[in-house]
Computed example of a mutant assay.
Amino acid sequence: MAVDLESTPKLSAPPGRAGRRRRVPGFVYPVVSVLLGLLIWNLVSMNYTSFFLPSPKLTWDGAVELIKDGTLWQAMTASSGRIFAGWALGVVVGVPVGLLTGRIQWLRLMLDPYIQFFRFVPPIAFVTLAIIWLGPGESSKIALIFYTSVFIVALNTLAGVLAVDELRLRAARSLGAGPVRTLVSVVLPSTVPYAVTGARLAMGNSFLTIVSAEIVAAQTGLGSLIWTARNYAKTEWVFVGIIALGVLGYLFDWVLRALTRATLRRYGVNG
């Protein structure tokens, strides 16, 4: 017997099911994660003294106290300025050094021992020398951040230069491009993703360095705030300083990622 396909009822999903399968907004997951973390923190803090592990409420009260008297804002501003100044100087110096060492072999061979040596010496080892040579002012902290940043940026830029396809370089030379033209039109665009990656890594390391530098020689800054909190047995202030560092780092990296995406699009690279 023939079956009339047109008259056969079609199977369909139960009404309303498609509407219920809505995608959860992306921001919900981080919010839930943070709230869950605060809940766990609060539950754990109930088993310890406030000196050992202050609760979220006590930490919030400490933050409000530091905000009202201007201490927290002053500390965040001081640390942010030092980090940005040292990091920017490291990027400005590191990118050209990476480009030149990548393109000039004899320069790379001469600088390689120094780069390989100093990149393994942590910045905290130079804190005392920085204070002796530059004094306890801003210059010593900025110099330490610069030291932290410059090698990371230079090495990542150097890796980008060495990764440029040799065929592209030959094609540029065959079209009459000189060394400078080849550097600007071929090498630099290919190196941009490596340079911006180095800049992001250097930013993270800058936050690692600033605390050590400010603890040793600074009257203001988040590192100084954390050390002062220790002297006054204010553990909640220590937590406020740590959270402020994390928030600052997140904001700095968010801005840098936005600039990175714009830069990569400018050079036609997906990132």
Rank of each mutant, 00 (worst) to 15 (best):
P136E: 02
L100P: 01
L99F: 10
R82N: 14
R170Y: 12
A125H: 04
I142N: 00
Q74L: 11
G135C: 05
D165E: 15
I145L: 15
T101P: 05
V91W: 03
S149N: 07
L169G: 11
I132D: 00
S190P: 01
Q116K: 00
L107S: 03
G178F: 04
M76G: 08
P193L: 14
V164S: 05
V91S: 08
V121C: 00
L162H: 02
S139W: 09
G178L: 02
G98W: 05
D112G: 07
G70V: 07
Q74Y: 06
G135K: 11
L129A: 09
V192E: 03
G102I: 00
L107K: 04
D69P: 08
T71R: 13
A75T: 13
W106T: 05
L99C: 11
V127E: 00
L129W: 02
P136K: 07
G160W: 02
V95H: 05
A154W: 05
E65N: 14
T77D: 01
V93M: 13
F117R: 02
Q105P: 05
S190L: 09
A143N: 01
I83L: 12
A159N: 06
I145Y: 01
L169H: 12
I152H: 05
A154E: 12
L169D: 08
T191L: 02
F146A: 07
T128W: 04
